[in-house]
Design a protein around this nucleic acid. Structure first.
Length: 720
DNA sequence: GACCTGCTGCGGTTTG
């Protein structure tokens, strides 16, 4: 064994030998060195199953064992985004720590109260916790934070990429900062990830005050070989005897995947149900035991566990038709191939998905990408002629191969989460001054883009008598208001993200899952759910329960959802592909033919950026992603245009009362201001937005979903 | 034109 091995404590060395490891991986040796030699924060990147957790914890546990500290408190803190991941990691860490007598404490909503009570009484060892449960400790046991965390040596943040830019990530950073301020010293932060687009930004996320001092350790061995196939199909053709495109995709999947274990990412819960149903029918028709199973967040925990266990076991061939539920976190073993139906929304997510395949040495990672394009009628619009789904799928695969993925947007205000943290700090301390809150949350914490005047506006909005989240006492201290009290009292406060209302679906006593209340169902209605077919028997509106029984036919329910955000770089690549002549080798013949069609349609556009389709209908070639295109769309809607967005294009319809399009764009290009929100678009998209004013919601949108600074330049390009 | 994630305290009952 190596030098790195010699530096670990005896019980840890013993554990490594017991595993039968022949040596430490280079990533592990490097991380052991970095952790033992210094005190710097670290970002550790390696592919899924690359041994990151052990790399970080073997030396951290060694430090704890070799230098036990006097006094109570947890020694190490692990933050993870999923309950299943925490349970899994706790089991692995307990395996290392058990003999040495170091407690490992998993802590989330499904952990027994007795386990938590015991850990609170004698806090020692490694605490593995979700952001929400940590939030609850602050709100309910604010006074005990120094006692619980006073002895901490380091914090490990798992799946760092998944919390970089999200509301949840901001919450996590705020809580970390609040622990440090209570302790009066910085804690060593170690972030683990498989998918980081920009290491510099990830370091800035981990330690905003000193990003340059954050070390980075990456696995040196490149990923495994990647094999890609892109199959194209045409839907809605005139021949009634021709099978539907979705059936062709299902048949292709059935022939290629049966007999092995695979993941099929269908793109939406509705499509999961459609393809699970088709594949199960094919399996039944062939007289084979069922190996295709649906998996998404609306299915019951029992069913999801069953599918996950089957995949992990690896004894029976199993293909999960799934959404991003199987993209992140828990170890489900190695799958033969990953299929993607329709272009994905981000390269980051595609890369994460592909990390599930080709994990055994010598095995390639296999991606089967399926794209369905429309049959072109003579009057087909340009968006269909440009085959944008196909072109986006190619752009995503190209960028994936180049190693790029979307970076976070660091300037976002996250005002909803700021409101949440204001309430949390007031609950923790019983009260706080505006100045203290601004210093803790904004100047020192994660809400750095919120200056003092903007913060004042937020406090005023949530302190309005008709809002009643907070109130001010005579001496200037901010206290919990009546509604604030009520919100914080309920356990639903701890999560910073929204959740929709749902019905439970029951087949007798079997829990099938949940369905958004937007689905208007009547007794007798037919339904596809969990990959099986049902008829609605009873609806109990009061208790929000729907009882079903097996049926022979059904239609998939609708699950709602919002549009995704496509990055500028992806759209830029799509235009390069449209203007190019080379045909990627991974395209099947029909996909290649569709790409040819797209290119000749694109060529007819010429180099103009404003195409007049008819006297009042235009196509604007924005060549931009969702944020910039949305900004231009808002500007156009504010003066009465109707707008339909596509990747890199806007279809614009005018009326007699709208201004001349080119003149309007020219005025913006010359710097004329425009009120993007004149037509009062909906702006509440986060949990605590409902308490903010219109003006604050506009600020929030402008910081993340709309980019005013890009508008003039885009209009200049369009009118040049 | 999409997906995912999370949750306390307390009272009652059972078991050792």
């Amino acid at each position: 064994m190596s030098m790195a091995f010699d530096r670990l404590s005896r019980p840890v060395q013993k554990w490594i030998r017991a595993q039968g490891w022949t040596g430490l991986r280079p990533l592990q040796a490097d991380t052991i060195g970095a952790i033992m030699d210094g005190t710097a924060d670290l970002v550790v990147t390696a592919s899924t199953a690359g041994g990151k957790t052990e790399a970080a914890f073997l030396p951290l546990i060694s430090q704890v064992l070799d230098d036990p500290r006097a006094g109570a408190g947890f020694d190490l803190l692990y933050l993870g985004p999923l309950k299943a991941l925490i349970t899994d990691q706790a089991r692995r860490l307990d395996d290392i720590c058990h003999e040495a007598g170091l407690p490992v404490v998993p802590w989330h909503g499904d952990i027994a109260g007795s386990t938590k009570a015991k850990a609170l009484k004698d806090p020692r060892g490694i605490l593995l916790i979700t952001p929400e449960s940590l939030e609850a400790l602050f709100v309910r046991r604010g006074n005990e934070v120094p006692r619980l965390f006073g002895a901490l040596r380091a914090v490990v943040i798992d799946e760092l990429h998944s919390v970089l830019d999200s509301e949840r990530g901001v919450q996590m950073r705020s809580l970390l900062n609040r622990i440090e301020r209570r302790l009066g010293r910085p804690l060593r932060r170690i972030g683990l990830s498989a998918t980081l687009g920009d290491i510099g930004l990830a370091c800035a996320y981990l330690r905003p005050d000193y990003p340059g001092a954050v070390g980075h350790i990456a696995a040196t061995s490149g990923g495994s070989e990647l094999r890609v196939q892109l199959c194209g199909y045409v839907a809605g053709g005139p021949d009634p005897d021709e099978p539907a495109a979705a059936d062709l995709v299902a048949t292709h999947l059935f022939q290629r995947l049966r007999g092995s274990s695979n993941l099929v990412f269908a793109g939406s819960r509705e499509r999961v149900e459609i393809y699970a149903d088709k594949l199960r029918q094919l399996c039944d028709a062939a007289g084979l035991p069922q190996e295709f199973h649906a998996h998404h967040a609306s299915l019951s925990r029992e069913h999801r566990d069953f599918v996950e266990r089957r995949l992990k076991d690896g004894r029976l061939p199993t293909t999960a038709i799934c959404t991003s539920t199987l993209e992140l976190g828990i170890d489900i073993g190695d799958v033969t191939c990953v299929a993607q139906i329709g272009a994905p929304f981000s390269v980051a997510s595609l890369r994460q998905r592909l990390g599930r395949s080709g994990r055994r040495a010598g095995q390639p990672a296999i991606l089967r990408q399926y794209v369905i394009e429309a049959w072109l009628r003579p009057d087909a619009n340009l968006a269909d002629r440009l085959r944008l789904d196909l072109v986006r799928a190619i752009a995503m695969i190209d960028l994936l191969i180049e190693g790029w993925c979307e970076p976070p947007a660091p300037q976002a205000l996250h005002l909803s989460t700021l409101v949440h943290q204001v309430l949390s700090v007031i609950a923790e301390r019983g009260g706080a001054t505006a100045a203290d809150l601004h210093r803790l949350l904004c100047r020192e914490g994660p809400f750095r883009s919120v200056d003092a005047p903007l913060f004042q506006q937020v406090l005023r909005a949530i302190g309005r008598p008709d809002t009643g989240l907070i109130e001010q006492s005579g001496n200037g201290l901010l206290l919990m208001g009546r509604l604030g009290e009520k919100l914080v009292e309920h356990y639903s406060f701890y999560a910073v993200f929204q959740t929709p209302e749902e019905y439970s679906l029951l087949n007798g006593t079997e829990k099938l899952g949940t369905l958004p209340v937007e689905n208007i169902l009547a007794p007798g209605a037919l339904l596809i759910f969990s990959g099986r077919r049902w008829q609605v028997k009873e609806i109990h509106a009061e208790s929000r329960v729907i009882v079903v029984e097996p049926a022979k036919a059904g239609v998939p329910p609708s699950f709602g959802g919002n549009a995704g955000i496509i990055h500028d770089r992806v759209v830029e690549r799509m235009f390069r592909i449209l203007g190019d002549r080379a045909v990627p080798a991974y395209l099947e013949p029909l996909a290649a033919a569709l790409l040819e069609q797209a290119r000749s349609s694109f060529a007819t556009l010429g180099s103009g950026r404003i195409c007049e389709l008819s006297p009042q209908a235009f196509l604007l070639v924005t060549r931009r992603g969702t944020v910039a295109s949305t900004t231009l769309a808002l500007a156009l809607q504010s003066v009465g245009f109707r707008v339909q967005p596509y990747d890199g294009f806007l279809e614009v319809l005018g009326t007699d009362s709208t201004p001349a399009l080119r003149a309007f764009l020219t005025r913006i290009a010359q710097g004329d201001s425009v009120d993007l929100f004149a037509h009062d678009p909906p702006l509440q998209f986060e949990k605590f937005h409902v308490f903010l004013t219109r003006s604050l919601l506009q600020h929030d949108a402008l910081s993340s979903r709309v980019d005013l600074s890009a508008l003039a330049m885009l209009c200049k390009e369009l009118t040049a």
